[in-house]
Nucleic acid binder design. Structure first.
Length: 355
RNA sequence: UCGGAGAUCGUCUAAUGGUAGGACACUGGGUUUUGGUCCCAGCAAUCUAGGUUCGAUCCCUAGUCUCCGAG
């Protein structure tokens, strides 16, 4: 077979997507090694960590497919690079995206290095995305496209990465799993932070960060109490315990005063932004940058599965935010700490963190 | 203290002399590999005591409480 000389390490999470990924690559003739990353194993607040189940499921898949299986223990590194980052961001009142960091630091860096060390030519994951000549392209299945989470990977990593699911629709993936009789074909999708399992973010943060209750303020008036400003994120509507007529949305917060600001007016100026200041920009093709893109019109997405909005790249307002994106239409509830990801048609070219 | 107004789900409110609808909150489910959003479902109320009436949340009386004016 044409690919028989190539060794591919496939990240096997225990879920259906990565199992089908491994299966497809094996069918294509690659020498597949199933690798399960152990990133977290701690039980928290009465919630049992699912890692043992995930590990067993991943191993079952490998055995079923008849491929080699390895366990890669990244727990310490994951804590240092992903969890610590997440906690630090929350502490200063921002809303981080740990899965973006996980892809940047773990899956497409540490995992890649570990795989290469063990003789891999390539790695693969069950992400819905496509690569072409070191470019990152949106998945064929628009509903499942996961490029939003992948914009911080490098071209070098993409050159060594396969995303077979990027060409498929999710229902096809399910069908393939069922046809092949994969042991986890009917496994429920797992959601939430990839490692935390069923525990909510609030319980997770409470384990690591002390919080105090404070005021919820609307137009200068105290309208309620919250149990810790870090738990709230811009645009959030639930969890405030405030009733009466129109829903309340969080418009901002002051970590010093420990105050959370809300509005019931959807037209409230504080809820809408006409530009985005980006910090820590990253471009997959490192020849791109603030200067080469200035004046260029791109599409930006400020959350997973959000609509694309046209924007024009401009110079930033400071060293820490070297890029400003001027939006063609205002975006609601822009959230500092979340990612703004840039596209040119089907290509994801990079992005940055919302200042 | 006097004058005026009003008391309905946890909150904001709708309604009729025939036992109450909506919204928000909350809870559960769905969508989503972050947070959040969004969608569906569920929970839940006529201040108290009398009176009129076949029947009162609605009308009358008293009480309690609240709010707005004048001190």
């Amino acid at each position: 077979m044409k690919n028989s000389s190539q060794i591919v390490f496939v990240g096997l999470s225990g879920g259906v997507d990565s199992a089908v990924t491994a299966m497809l690559l094996k069918e294509q003739g690659y020498r597949v090694v199933g690798a399960h990353m152990k990133n977290w194993s701690k039980d928290i607040g009465g919630f049992e960590c699912p890692w043992e189940d995930d590990y067993q499921e991943a191993k079952r898949v490998a055995v079923y497919l008849g491929v080699e299986f390895v366990l890669l223990d990244f727990e310490q590194h994951y804590f240092d690079k992903v969890v610590q980052y997440m906690l630090d961001e929350f502490r200063i009142g921002r809303t981080p995206n740990p899965d973006v960091m996980c892809n940047q630091e773990i899956k497409f860096k540490l995992f890649l290095e570990a795989a290469v060390d063990r003789g891999a030519d390539l790695i693969a994951t069950g992400h819905y995305a496509r690569t072409h000549d070191g470019k990152l392209l949106r998945a064929v299945d628009d509903n499942k496209d996961q490029t939003y989470f992948l914009y911080r990977v490098t071209k070098d990593a993409l050159d060594k990465t396969l995303f077979p699911l990027g060409e498929l629709e999710k229902p096809q993936v399910r069908a393939l799993a069922t046809q092949a009789g994969l042991p986890n074909a009917n496994r429920k999708e797992s959601m939430g932070i990839c490692f935390v399992g069923k525990i909510g973010i609030k319980d997770f943060l409470s384990e690591y960060i002390d919080t105090e209750s404070g005021d919820i303020v609307e137009k200068g008036q105290v309208v309620g109490r919250h149990d810790g400003a870090i738990f709230y994120t811009i645009g959030q509507r639930h969890g405030l315990g405030l009733g009466g007529g129109m829903p309340y949305y969080v418009t901002g917060k002051d970590m010093e005063k420990n105050e959370v600001y809300v509005t019931r007016d959807l037209a409230d100026q504080s809820l809408w932004s006409e530009y985005i200041d980006l910090t820590s920009p990253h471009f997959i093709d490192s020849s791109y940058g603030p200067s080469s893109l200035e004046g260029v019109t791109l599409q930006v997405r400020t959350r997973h599965r959000a609509d694309f909005v046209d924007c024009v790249v401009a110079a930033g307002s400071s060293e820490t935010s070297p890029i400003r994106l001027n939006l063609s239409s205002e975006i609601k509830a822009l959230t500092p700490g979340q990612s703004a990801v840039l596209y040119r048609a089907d290509e994801c070219i990079g992005g940055g963190i919302i200042a």
